[in-house]
Design a protein around this nucleic acid. Structure first.
Lengths: 215, 215
DNA sequence: TAGATTGTTAATCGATTAACAATC
DNA sequence: TAGATTGTTAATCGATTAACAATC
């Protein structure tokens, strides 16, 4: 039976990709080692938080030395699961779907776009970065037969729940949801929401509250 | 001098747009009033949290009755600053820029796209939802002369910091940053980050940790 | 009035920061 | 060895939940 893993809070998980990004930049600029203190200054977080966060997963540093940049970068990639590749499809071939399909950096991190689907027959055959847009009715079988783990949902909210249910039936593991709605899927399905309208409202809130302060 | 406003935590602000969305749906389906308890069931949060969150901004409910949906929806729109319109530009006319420009719901919430800019001369004159793409060198004056509050930055990370500085010089209030980098702007400039690659890594983390549990 | 449900205070829980002994 | 810096425990701070008096 599975050993009970220590639960990692979502606050920690939210910070991990940012550590990964900064370490990648350090690596590119040839920095070999870094202390939690120096990293904390660059990232504008506390050194204590960095050490606490990392020690959720293991002791990656060395007393008196700090952290080896290349090693820590690699270890975080393992934690994040981006040391292996993930097959992905995109559902919705509009601008947003195309933007995601066209973003080469995702592929670099191991997210491989295997297919793009759309209901609009006009888009079929249309090619995005060498990937032909397929018809929506082909999606279910495609997911079943091509070891697809992730589906990016870039479709209007009206059809999102229905499409998500089809994907779950086809055995999808995770949904990257750009539709402006909650999906309420079985709890073993991973859902990562990107609600752009909510992001824009938070920005708007901050403008409004700044204006009020000034008065 | 400004009265010291009570500080609202970012956890609360993060939830506000979601309340707004659920209330909008209730409004559309003709529901007149709702208790914190019923809303908590729909949204899968505690009723206590809803009441605490709202009471940061005022007492919008009524004992024995609950909350009037239309009234509360309206009040939250004021809090979020989406009861007035905001002029906006988009910098970067790629797929992501086009996706944002083309999303009608933003306009419905009062975010008006006044201009789209790109360095690529080939895109100039190209029209997106009736808005002509303008040349990058026109941007600074355009921001100064057209009361632009918000700039959506949908450009590669390499040029993001430089472009952001130009926008700040031109008097921008807020930047909606889609570039995969931190901007480090003066603290009176509002920055809302949408780091899609980080979102995808969090999703990947959850797949990886679920797989580990299963073993 | 009685019942329902808020607004708000108090209790709990969790996350962040500080401190320092361990150790490279 | 002495100095530096981690890993980790303890202290603090903040956010969430529970409870209930106020009140519609």
């Amino acid at each position: 039976m599975a050993v009970e893993e220590k639960h990692i809070s979502s606050a920690v998980i939210r910070r991990l990709p940012r550590y990964y990004r900064y370490l990648g930049e350090l690596l590119d600029s040839g920095v070999e080692r870094i202390s939690s203190n120096e990293l904390s200054e660059r990232m504008k977080v506390t050194a204590s938080q960095i050490r606490q966060d990392l020690n959720n997963f293991g002791g990656f540093g060395q007393q008196g030395y700090g952290y080896n940049v290349e090693y820590l970068h690699k270890e975080i990639s393992k934690i994040l699961g981006i040391d292996t590749s993930h097959n992905m499809i995109i559902v919705g071939a509009g601008n947003l779907g195309q933007a995601i399909a066209g973003y080469a950096d995702f592929e670099k991190r191991g997210f491989i776009v295997k297919g793009i689907f759309d209901i609009n027959p006009e888009l079929t055959g249309h090619s995005i970065r060498g990937i032909n847009v397929k018809m929506f009715y082909e999606m279910e079988d495609f997911v079943k037969n091509n070891d697809i783990e992730i589906a990016a949902l870039t479709i209007p909210k009206e059809s999102a729940v229905e499409v998500a249910n089809i994907l779950v039936k086809a055995g999808i593991k995770a949904i990257w949801n750009f539709a402006h709605t909650d999906l309420n899927l079985p709890k073993d399905i991973i859902v990562e929401n990107v609600h752009l309208s909510e992001s824009l409202m938070r920005l708007s809130y901050n403008i409004a509250s700044r204006n009020k302060d000034k008065k």
